[in-house]
């Protein structure tokens, strides 16, 4: 059994706290966990919190290459070890989270957490084609999600508007995650490992909630 990974959504992407233990055991576990949740991690920018662990440039380079194979960018290493700091600098990896933030985000999408303490992100705009939101916690959208937009969330997804893009709730494997929208007609809807496509357009739209019940992905009208 793998040690669960501590993943935190930050401005610059995701911050992963690497568990203690022998690197030769930790690394395969880490990669295995990432592979199991590839939908969630694909295209992500990761920062690693590795405390005082000593890693050589070769080990860090290997880690970066392994992540690159999963289409993941390693951009920062947070460490207190001088050896690791030098190794990270050699590879051109950042060593602090601030400073390299928004400019890197090409869409300039405001990802601010309004619910402090609760891991959720509130997006007060319509997500148009090409926009995507990836967040380890819950995602709340005040606006529409147009076809071609994508939400990948570790928890629930709530859309106060029309959901017509692609959505993945519980991307880390959480089957209790739900997706609700005022008009639930996504191009594709996924919860944990289950995938469904919307039935062809109905004439009447109503708020609906999708969840996994008895191993089946179901959508039902929202009854107040």
């Amino acid at each position: 059994m793998n040690t669960p990974l501590a993943i935190k959504g930050i401005r610059d992407g995701l911050l992963i706290t690497v568990p203690a233990g022998d690197w030769t055991e930790v690394l395969p576990n880490l990669l295995e966990t990432i592979r199991q949740q590839e939908d969630f991690f694909r295209g992500a920018r990761l920062a690693f919190q590795i405390e005082d662990r000593e890693l050589s440039a070769a080990e860090l380079g290997h880690l970066r290459d392994m992540l690159a194979e999963e289409e993941i960018t390693l951009w920062a290493i947070l460490t207190t070890s001088e050896t690791t700091k030098i190794a990270a600098a050699d590879l051109g990896l950042a060593q602090e989270l601030s400073g390299k933030s928004c400019a890197e985000d090409e869409e300039g999408l405001p990802l601010e957490s309004r619910l402090q303490g609760e891991e959720a992100v509130l997006v007060e705009r319509t997500l148009r084609s090409g926009h995507n939101i990836r967040y380890a916690g819950h995602v709340i959208i005040l606006g529409d999600v147009n076809p071609g937009a994508e939400i990948i969330s570790g928890g629930h997804v709530i859309v106060w508007g029309r959901l017509r893009g692609t959505v993945h709730a519980g991307a880390g494997g959480d089957e209790s995650a739900t997706v609700c929208a005022l008009d639930l007609s996504p191009t594709q809807l996924r919860i944990a490992g289950q995938i469904a496509v919307s039935p062809s357009r109905r004439s009447k739209t109503m708020p609906e909630i999708a969840c996994i019940r008895d191993g089946q992905l179901v959508a039902e009208p929202w009854q107040a």
């Binding site: 869409e107 148009r128 084609s129 090409g130 076809p147």
Partner: peptide, 10 residues
Amino acid sequence: ADRIIGLVEA
């Protein structure tokens, strides 16, 4: 066009 509107807004 939707994509463009998003980019223009950004």
